[in-house]
Design a protein around this nucleic acid. Structure first.
Length: 214
DNA sequence: CCAGACGTTGTT
DNA sequence: GTCTGG
DNA sequence: CCAGACGTTGTT
DNA sequence: GTCTGG
C-alpha cells in the first residue's frame, strides 16, 4: 500500500511539465492521509487535493480516510472509483514513500524511491458537494509489488513515467489503453533503506525522517 | 419494490 | 479491541 | 500506515 | 449515482 509519502519541491516536477506552476506546500517528509497534497490534473492543471477520495454520492466525507488507495486491478469497475477513472485522473508528484515491515509493535519503516526523482503516482480525484461547499479529494492507485519491493511488501503505488503523462491525463483516452500504464515500475529503478520509527507519528516532519539507520 | 453498500490493507 | 483522524 | 481516542453531565 | 441483496 502507500499510506505515507514524501515530496520535497515542486521545482523539479514543474520542469517536467514545461514550467507549469506547482503550489508550494513543502518540503514534506511525512505526507499522511487526509492532508492536502499537490496534484496535476488534465489540462495540465495543478491542484491541491485532500488525500482520501470521497465519492460524489457519499453522505459523509469521513469515508475518505479509508479511500487513500485504489487497486489497479479493479479501479475501472469499483463504484467508488470508476467515474473518476474515466474522467478525473491525475498525477501526484513524489520523491519517495514509506512501507512498514514486521508485526505490530516491532514494525520497521523503510523509505523507498523510484528513480529518477521526482516521480509521479497514478491518482484519481473527485468532487464532493457538502453543505459548506465543495471538497476535492484524491487517491493513489496501487498494483502488485515488483521483485525489488516484494521482500518487504506485496503492493506498491503505480508510478507513471514522464513519457506517459500525456496519455494518463488525456480525457479522451480509452480506459483499455490506460491499463498497461498501471504496471509495477521496473525493479532496478527502486532504491530503499530502513529509517527511524519517528515517521510513524504523522505529526513529525523533517529531512531526518528519510535518513538511513544502521 | 426498497434498503444498503459502495474500499484497502494487514492480520487472523 | 476497534474506530477515527492525520 | 501509525497515533490517539474511546463519554456524559454539569459547572466554570 | 448505481448495483446488489432481500
Amino acid at each position: 500500500m502507500c499510506a505515507r509519502y514524501v515530496f520535497f519541491s515542486g521545482k523539479a516536477f514543474s520542469d517536467q511539465f514545461g514550467g507549469l506552476a506547482i503550489p508550494d506546500l513543502g518540503p514534506r517528509y511525512n505526507i499522511a492521509p487526509t492532508q492536502p497534497v499537490v496534484a496535476v490534473a488534465s489540462g495540465p492543471e495543478a491542484k491541491v487535493l485532500q488525500w482520501g477520495l470521497v465519492p460524489s454520492w457519499a453522505k459523509d466525507p469521513s469515508i475518505g480516510a479509508r479511500m487513500i488507495n485504489a487497486r489497479a486491478e479493479t479501479v475501472a469497475e469499483k463504484p467508488s472509483f470508476r467515474t473518476a477513472f474515466k474522467r478525473r485522473r491525475c498525477l501526484l508528484p513524489a520523491d519517495g514513500f514509506y512501507e512498514w515491515v514486521g508485526e505490530k509493535g516491532h514494525k520497521q519503516p523503510f523509505f523507498l524511491q523510484v528513480e529518477p526523482t521526482p516521480f509521479a503516482f497514478a491518482g484519481l480525484w473527485e468532487i464532493w458537494e457538502g453543505p459548506d461547499g465543495y471538497l476535492e479529494t484524491c487517491t493513489i492507485i496501487t498494483t502488485e509489488a515488483n521483485d525489488a519491493v516484494r521482500p518487504i511488501h506485496d503492493r506498491m503505488p503505480v508510478v507513471i513515467d514522464q513519457v506517459d503523462y500525456g496519455q494518463w491525463l488525456d480525457t479522451a483516452a480509452r480506459p483499455e489503453s490506460l491499463m498497461p500504464l498501471l504496471a509495477p515500475a521496473a525493479p532496478d529503478r527502486v532504491k530503499m533503506w530502513p529509517v527511524g520509527k519517528a515517521v510513524g507519528n504523522p505529526r513529525i516532519e523533517g529531512p531526518e525522517l528519510i535518513e538511513a539507520i544502521a
